[in-house]
């Protein structure tokens, strides 16, 4: 029984340490690669431009249209009344 408890504690400790290291590693990766992730617009237009082999210019209106076309639901967001007085 005692041996089982020791083993369980050991495994639990290893899991905790592993999780902590992974978080720390992910954190440092995100922090050090400032262009590691980009906005949806970036991914979207990179794909669109490469599809037909051309490289068309992207306007601000294109971005608005693309956002509207791909819009499928409204995200739950705090209301202004919870932040501001007036």
């Amino acid at each position: 029984m005692r041996a089982w408890l020791s083993l369980a504690s050991f495994i639990g400790g290893v899991l905790m340490l592993t999780a902590a290291c992974a978080t720390s590693e992910e954190w440092s990766e995100w922090r050090s690669h400032t262009t590691h992730f980009a906005s949806g617009t970036h991914g979207m237009f990179s794909m669109r431009n490469n599809k037909d082999g051309s490289n068309p210019r992207v306007s601000r209106t294109d971005i608005d249209s693309a956002r509207q076309e791909n819009w499928w639901g409204k995200a739950i967001t705090v209301s202004p009344e919870q932040i501001f007085q007036n």
């Binding site: 262009t35 617009t41 210019r57 971005i63």
Partner: peptide, 18 residues
């Protein structure tokens, strides 16, 4: 809070401001 220049240096691929 730390230094991060992303917002002032990032460019959207092929984007052309009006």
């Amino acid at each position: 809070v730390w230094e991060d220049s992303f917002n002032s240096t990032y460019k959207v691929n092929s984007y052309e401001p009006p």
